[in-house]
Amino acid sequence: MTDHIITSSFASRQLGTPTDLGADATRDISAGLTGLLADVFALYLKTKNFHWHMSGPNFRDYHLLLDEQADQIFAMTDPIAERARKIGGTTLRSVSDIAGRQRILDNNADYVDPLDMLAELHGDNKQLVAEMRRVHDLCDRYADVATASLIEVWIDETERRSWFLYESSRTSVIR
């Protein structure tokens, strides 16, 4: 019975982390980070989907490229969520929460041509960079240099993924 009372007391408290950022900053930046997190999870799963379903003459190279990129994408998830919590916000709670917030579109096709996979992921990474820049602007508005700094690293990593996908999907040789 004592455990139940302690649990109920804990459950009734609001999550909150002390921060010097104002309530508006906490609300807006954590919402932006949560949207990014949903997109990152969607991009991670799409990248793994294409990794698992890759085929064709460049299978090995593309398969390994997408596996490496998926690992890098997944590595962003915990820092994004924890940053939202560090500034006093909350973040994703479930797969349905991700589905309700993601802007990166799913691809459930039975077959996707390998070059179309790379082109689609290239576009998705470019879209993610645009969303990151939007959240970075929020950070600048509220002087949240720590979140902005993290986002700058993620933008660089995402632009690199986009570049590799673009170059890997080129079909003509420049002379």
Rank of each mutant, 00 (worst) to 15 (best):
I104E: 02
A84I: 01
P79V: 00
E167M: 13
K126E: 02
A143T: 02
L115G: 10
R85T: 03
R101M: 06
R134E: 03
D97A: 12
R103D: 03
A99T: 05
L105E: 13
S168W: 07
K126T: 00
D97K: 12
S149H: 15
D110V: 00
V112I: 11
G100W: 07
A84G: 13
L150C: 06
L121M: 11
V112K: 06
L121D: 07
A84Q: 11
A148H: 06
Q127I: 00
D106L: 02
K86N: 06
D113A: 15
I80H: 04
W163H: 02
A99I: 00
I151V: 08
S96G: 04
I80W: 02
G89Q: 15
E152T: 12
R85S: 03
S96I: 08
R134M: 06
V95H: 09
T158V: 00
E157W: 09
R141T: 04
I98F: 10
D97Y: 06
S169I: 03
L105D: 08
L121S: 03
I98H: 05
I80P: 00
A109N: 07
R103P: 00
L150F: 08
I155S: 11
E157R: 13
A130G: 01
V95P: 07
V135I: 05
G88M: 12
D106H: 09
A119S: 13
Y111L: 10
L165W: 06
I98M: 13
V145L: 08
D156L: 12
S168A: 15
A146T: 10
D113N: 15
M76W: 14
R85V: 04
V135W: 06
M132N: 06
R141Q: 13
S168D: 12
V129G: 05
D124Y: 10
S94H: 12
V95G: 08
D137L: 13
G88P: 06
V129Y: 05
M117A: 08
L121A: 09
R93E: 05
W154Y: 15
N108C: 11
G89T: 09
R93N: 08
E157A: 13
N125F: 10
S168G: 14
T90P: 04
T90L: 12
R161K: 12
A119H: 10
D97I: 03
G123F: 04
F164R: 14
A143S: 14
A119T: 06
A84P: 04
A130C: 03
S96Y: 15
E120K: 14
T90I: 07
R160A: 14
S162T: 07
E152K: 15
K86F: 06
R83S: 01
T91N: 09
L121I: 03
I155A: 09
